[in-house]
Nucleic acid binder design. Structure first.
Lengths: 292, 292
DNA sequence: ATTCATTGGTGCGTACTTACACCAATGCTT
DNA sequence: AAGCATTGGTGTAAGTACGCACCAATGAAT
């Protein structure tokens, strides 16, 4: 009876190359994968995988099973997507994938209001750093910041968001020009490209911090200049824009969903909500003074 | 973990329209199907099936799942076929589907010899009346008697098999012409088409018997004329060909396999064996006297 | 060379799923 | 209209599969 689930094990083994990795992907114990693979080999009277250089690889006979499992997975994901797209209810789970900074510093109040307006919808925020895969139903909608048009997703490109140069209020006055430093990213060069576009193209990178929030905190503590999103820094107490620094329009803001799910009322209502909420904050996002 | 197996339940429910029918198709208890369907609905937070006029039908939301399950099934069958086609061994299970009469009266000794020559091959004879579906791996090879070319199977058309008119030795001498009767099929008319081609086109059908072996026994018992395969009746003690009755060539004999499995040595060797064994009996099958 | 981490396999107790009942409800046949 | 067959649902006991251990083996890092 558990014949088709074996294909999931085959797929997980092929992808991870180890019994323990496959078990993790399937959220089961590695003993389960080990035993079920053994049972599968016994049932098929042939080895599906062989261990080569410490890695599980499909045998010649196993390869068709892997290919079949891939097609089954595709069919299963498509089926679940299409089913979700036909859901006419305004209740249940609804997942939005978006950059954590956007969630925290730009849309937190709006998302709270959305939950209040739709109390039966269980909104789930997915703020993993990697983009959610809507094909695999990791999310119903994504708010993506990118200059590349999305593969096959549908939705709207809104406008570009702006970044500019910020620092703690007295950092510039208290620091000799030669000791000025940028707060950069771990893989930045001494004078990366983005520095060239700022008002301090000759200041080198000092501390390199991956996490945006930590980089932000470092700037607050007066440890350097930060090139940060205006919607974050302009509203942050304890940071001022460097005099003369203009907002630099960077990547586009996209609100996207999968074509299969566009028609679902739940998805559509959050889509419109996000577009409106973001559009209302266009001035802030593009780094224009709120008084203008 | 048993996520993909639910698609098997969906498919079985869609096809049979009842919980008990689906359970039978899956070889499980109907309570299992009932509970797993309930669990699935709970997990998806939506009904996949609804009962309309006493029959389970997929709901609007369920239809994509059924479509997905169909594609998954197709992928699973294709994967297993391709894997079986790569099997290089000369051992293990090998299934041949063929008409029971052919197995019993024509190839029984040959098939026994095949098993003797290949002791590690577990030959399985599949003599269901309906054609085995090679796509679904119900058999590795089929011996089919038909005038229609096979859909997408590959193999060889050999030659037509012959039928002629037989009866018990003294049936004709002991029966008045007006009381002669054909032994026919249940759905035969009084004077069906096939009677017209015989030497007794004006003799009506008497007893109507579905099973070929039983019809054969009825002829042996002197209950009528029988229009039977020459390879059956010519070798049967107790039946004689009606004087003047010629063999009538009927449908073609095909030996077929699935393209995916043609290359497997096990399949190829049985294929060649069958072609040779049948060809050696061409005279018998075409109803020509053995002395010619 | 030694230590350490990671791998896959196996015994064991538990928890879950299943089959076997029996049940009420519905539809078909007589 | 009444009897019968078939349907889907549920309680219970048995069987199976699972997770948690612990194990030896292998490879990586110091």
């Amino acid at each position: 009876m558990n014949a088709w689930d074996d294909y999931r094990i085959i797929l997980a083994l092929e992808r991870s190359g180890s019994v323990r990795g496959a078990a993790q992907a399937l959220s089961v114990n590695h003993a389960t994968v080990s035993r079920r693979l053994a049972a599968l080999n016994r049932r098929l009277d042939a080895a599906v995988f062989e261990r080569i250089e410490g890695r599980y690889r499909a045998t010649a006979q196993g390869k068709p099973l892997v290919a079949g499992a891939l097609r089954m997975e595709e069919a299963a994901y498509a089926a679940e997507r299409e089913m979700a797209g036909l859901d006419q209810s305004m209740s249940g789970r609804l997942t939005l994938s978006l950059p954590d900074v956007v969630a925290k510093c730009l849309l937190m109040e709006d998302l709270g209001r959305f939950c209040h307006e739709h109390p039966d919808i269980e909104l789930v925020l997915h703020t993993s750093h990697s983009f959610a895969d809507l094909d695999r139903r990791e999310a119903d909608l994504v708010l993506r910041i990118s200059n590349h048009p999305p593969d096959h997703l549908v939705g709207r490109r809104l406008f570009k968001y702006a970044r500019s140069c910020y620092c703690a209020p007295h950092y510039l006055a208290n620091t000799a020009f030669a000791r000025l430093r940028w707060l950069g990213w771990p893989d930045d060069a001494d004078r990366p490209e983005w520095v060239q576009e700022t008002v301090f193209p000759d200041v080198p990178v000092g501390m390199r911090i991956e996490d945006p929030m930590v980089r932000h905190a470092a700037a607050l503590a007066g440890h350097g200049l930060i090139f940060d999103a205006c919607f974050v820094a302009d509203r942050a107490a304890g940071l001022v824009r460097v005099p003369g620094a203009l907002p630099i329009l960077d990547r586009d803001i996209w609100v996207l969903t999968h074509p299969d799910m566009k028609a679902a009322p739940k998805v559509a209502v959050l889509f419109r909500f996000l577009v409106e909420a973001i559009s209302l904050k266009r001035g802030l996002i593009e780094g224009r003074p709120a008084t203008a």
